[in-house]
């Protein structure tokens, strides 16, 4: 039971917030507002579902075409701005949540990537990951907004990597993954 709750903790938390919001809307704004909000979410789901499905198909297919990893040898401390660009591209190409991306930092730094490159990687994964853009951002917020957001975010991995190479703190990867 506890394990089940832990595995679905996100879903449970979202459900709880939703439930509280529904009750608050009913109490504070009345039944009309509840009906209005329900209508809005039904429209939202119906509206974005086809795009979301297409986004997932595109992300799933791209993953078969673009290999990641194996590029770490071009991400050393001497790699300059080219290393940061490659690391940014790998970050964009890396799908999945934090459970996949943070261990990937260990893989990259184990293979020789420096702090600037792993920071570029993790910032680009979080900000510009193609998987998230295709599955969430384009269907929900529209291609125009998604493009504006992507263009505004594009230099960020590079800038973060550049700054981190100048932060006077040494970082070495932990010996192994914590259990």
């Amino acid at each position: 039971m506890l394990a089940l709750a832990r595995r679905h903790s996100t879903l449970l938390a979202l459900s709880a917030i939703t439930l509280v919001a529904v009750v608050l809307v009913r109490v504070l704004k009345g039944p009309d507002a509840v009906a209005h909000a329900w209508g809005g979410s039904v429209d939202l789901v119906i509206g974005i579902l086809p795009s979301m499905l297409m986004g997932m198909l595109m992300a799933g297919s791209l993953r078969q075409l673009v290999p990641t990893g194996a590029l770490a040898k071009w991400m050393g401390a001497e790699s300059g701005w080219k290393g940061l660009v490659i690391a940014s591209a790998v970050g964009i190409a890396t799908p999945g949540g934090p459970m996949a991306a943070f261990p990937m930092v260990l893989v990259l730094s184990g293979a020789g990537a420096d702090i600037g490159c792993v920071i570029s990687f993790i910032v680009c994964w979080g900000l510009n990951g193609f998987n998230r853009i295709l599955v969430w951002e384009v269907p929900l917020l529209g291609p125009d907004f998604a493009l504006l957001r992507f263009l505004s975010g594009l230099p960020m991995g590079f800038i973060a990597g550049w700054i981190s190479r100048r932060v006077p703190l040494r970082w070495a990867p932990p010996e192994s993954l914590p259990r």
Binding site: L14, I17, T18, A21, L24, A33, W38, G40, L44
Partner: peptide, 14 residues
């Protein structure tokens, strides 16, 4: 998604 969409629209009312 089925939980997050109502969450968004109901929070929007608030």
């Amino acid at each position: 998604m089925l939980v997050a969409m109502p969450m968004a629209t109901f929070l929007a009312e608030l």
